[in-house]
Design a protein around this nucleic acid. Structure first.
Lengths: 256, 256
DNA sequence: GACCGTACCGTACATCGTACGACTCAGCTA
DNA sequence: TAGCTGAGTCGTACGATGTACGGTACGGTC
């Protein structure tokens, strides 16, 4: 429901941890890497809620407190999980800029890759207490995603703004999708079932003349999506509008 | 850090609770309304983490378990908090459509009002387990925000898509802002201080030729914002691009 | 004055992150 | 080879959390 507190999180320690090699196992084979991988597996298998220090330790057949030898606390563990997940994104730093279709094709590729990242790692969207995790993979991600925007005539700040906008949109729609999936899973009923069950109740409330537009549009959207919402449609529709807007900005660069 | 589990949440019960009157106090003056208000006050004063059933009960000078007479569980309490907060948004259902500047001015107003809502109630952004809370105020919000789009030539589904896009963008940037504020508060150091402290460390890592663009753009953005990010700039920049894109869509309606 | 349903709430349980201090063992020194 | 040392491991304990369960006490109706 809500988000949990993060621990103190010494930034220097976090950075060292993120950029460190983590290669020397202790006498029970425990490594930062193995802990992080176990945590990610757990998160993907049973959701982020299942990622407790006890469960991670259990999966590694190790005492709970042994984890603290390698990782300062849960907050840092999550930081490491995030940066590790970012490692999935691009084979190399030029993957987006190699895409056809110029900057637009590249940004569509970036959006698709990030969308896929969230699809494969839905636990990332359950993290609320995001910290500035400038790990190696996050840095490579930033570099890779900026490159197709270099040379479009946009200023450096504009490049950053455009990227932030696109990534924010993908995260937003991906979160909506994950929420939808979670609700469905928890309640055990399909989207369509929920709609059928609660539509009369809602109609009785909404159609009382107070919200004519809301009920008309809600109805239309519901029928179009066969559901209360369609995250994939929200992704593509929003991305098209955003990229149209960016295209206008880029076109304006020539004649200021 | 992560999100908590929601309880079962019988939708019918939730809807009845949301639309109910909650007017008859028990013998210790306890009401659904008073519980929800206490919870919101607590959330605004000490953050969502402070909103535990124990703390809410304490604030009301009541036993913890007494809350469960009026509210099924914490999940439903949060639902009620959300719908109550939505009540702050618009004086009446025509507030957005009364705005000057046509649909664009109205959407800018909608964005500003939502941004302000999140500024005043940052706890809303810490809720991860969002459920379909179709309460009375959420319904009024939907109706009010759709009205300025009616008559623009957009289809019903497109109206919904545009609104979803704008609201998602506001939420996304507001969340970034809230995260930034929370990190600053927790660490006790200013944004600029963090930048000064960690810049050399980051430069040593990033400037090693591997991420030239990332370091150049990051530097430029950092100097422009006097910080690692500027949520207000992200809001307006993104909104401008999005509305430009929507304007193109609306213009295209005339000649398909 | 007796009754009864509802409001209230004390206790208990499982779960969480992690502080603390004890144990164990690999590898080095004497 | 014996002994030491420091790092890795982990058992126990504490204060949180949401809430199930069962008991208590009171307001309104006969």
């Amino acid at each position: 429901m809500s988000a949990k507190k993060a621990s103190d999180a010494d930034p220097a320690r976090s950075l060292a941890l993120l950029w460190g090699s983590h290669s020397k196992p202790g006498r029970s084979g425990l490594t930062v890497r193995s802990i992080v991988l176990a945590a990610i597996e757990l998160a993907n298998a049973e959701g982020l809620d299942a990622v407790s220090m006890r469960h991670v330790a259990e999966r590694l057949e190790v005492g709970t407190m042994s984890l603290y030898t390698h990782v300062p606390g849960k907050g840092e563990l999550v930081d490491l999980m995030i940066d590790t997940a970012y490692g999935e994104l691009y084979d190399d730093v030029d993957a987006p800029s190699r895409q056809p279709g110029g900057w637009r094709g590249a940004l569509e590729f970036v959006a698709a890759r990030n969308w896929d990242l969230y699809r494969r790692n839905p636990w990332m969207l359950q993290i609320i207490d995001v910290r500035s995790t400038l790990g190696p993979n996050a840095s490579l991600k930033y570099e890779a995603e900026l490159r197709p925007l270099d040379g479009t005539g946009l200023s450096d700040v504009e490049m950053d703004s455009v990227l932030t906008l696109v990534l924010g949109h993908v995260e937003s729609t991906a979160r909506a999708k994950a929420n939808k999936a979670r609700i469905q899973e928890e309640s055990g009923i399909t989207d369509a079932e929920w709609w059928l069950t609660n539509a009369p109740l809602l109609d009785k409330i909404m159609d009382s003349g107070r919200f004519p537009l809301a009920s008309r549009v809600g109805q239309a959207a519901g029928e179009a999506y066969q559901s209360v919402s369609d995250p994939v449609h929200a992704l593509t529709f929003g991305l098209d509008r955003i990229l149209d807007g960016v295209a206008g900005l880029i076109a304006d660069q020539d004649r200021p």
